[in-house]
Design a protein around this nucleic acid. Structure first.
Ligand SMILES: [Zn+2]
Ligand SMILES: [Zn+2]
Ligand SMILES: [Zn+2]
Ligand SMILES: [Zn+2]
Lengths: 132, 132
DNA sequence: ATAACGTTTGTTATAATATAACATATTTGA
DNA sequence: TCAAATATGTTATATTATAACAAACGTTAT
């Protein structure tokens, strides 16, 4: 049975801001942006972020402590994320590559460990920054 | 020409601690451990960490804000790291897999972005935690 | 040797990121 | 309808990381 999840008020507000941004947002920058809407404390932001991550609506870009909306409809509920990050302009893009996903999903090493999730971040130069 | 890099006093102290630990260490736990050796301030720790990372002696486990010694001699100076992380006991292991490394190193997407580095973290259950 | 340069250190203060603890309210479902 | 789960509000605090400045050290080229 597929669970239809309705978002709470705070969750909606915060998802909305993240979706409208075209860059990863930091928690305290989100907080600043929602203070006019009555969300006053860091914890309110972090709680919403945690839930949104669980639902796969957003991802955390670990190396940047920032949050982006998931643009990838077949992204398995936050369990498998791949990002490309420009080290010059900090542009972040979620990569959706079937072959790569399949490769990583099936990866297992000799230790016998079972992998439920992964996060991959590529760092480099975007085409814009390459030109300048 | 291969550059022989001699570590400074603080860098040696901190690398030593990280190498002896069998788990990722957090910056402030390192700080606590080296206070008897005269390193008193966070910045002294963070500066040494930064240098050690650049030299490829240690890596940062991004999702844990923790630092581990590199166990992988053919790890290209901090440019390509793969970790397995047990979500139950937090055991972290650096994975050295030629095939995976080659695959990721050669990965490129349609955007034309050039990747200089990557970091991959697998999350799951280690064999010990699986049993209990 | 010594000046110039880059690197490292020491130090104080502060910024940025994240969680603990507790009280209350709201929603969900048997 | 009432218990359980989820969400909110609030204050305080913990954790992680950097800014800014001054001094010492190490290396290299005159
Ligand atoms: Zn996604
Ligand atoms: Zn760029
Ligand atoms: Zn390594
Ligand atoms: Zn484990």
């Amino acid at each position: 049975m597929v669970q239809i999840q309705t978002l709470s008020k705070n969750q909606k507000i915060i998802l909305d801001i993240i979706e409208k941004a075209n860059e990863p947002l930091k928690a305290y920058s989100i907080l600043f942006n929602v203070q006019k809407k009555g969300i006053k404390a860091p914890l309110q932001v972090y709680r919403a972020l945690e839930k949104l991550i669980k639902l796969g609506k957003i991802h955390k870009v670990e190396s940047r402590n920032a949050f982006v909306a998931c643009k990838n409809s077949n992204c398995e509920i936050s369990k498998a994320t791949v990002f490309s990050i420009c080290e010059t302009c900090e542009k972040v893009t979620e990569i959706s590559n079937q072959k790569l996903s399949k490769y990583l999903k099936n990866f297992h090493d000799k230790t016998g460990m079972t992998y439920k999730k992964y996060n991959l971040e590529f760092y480099g130069l975007c085409t814009t920054c390459k030109r300048s």
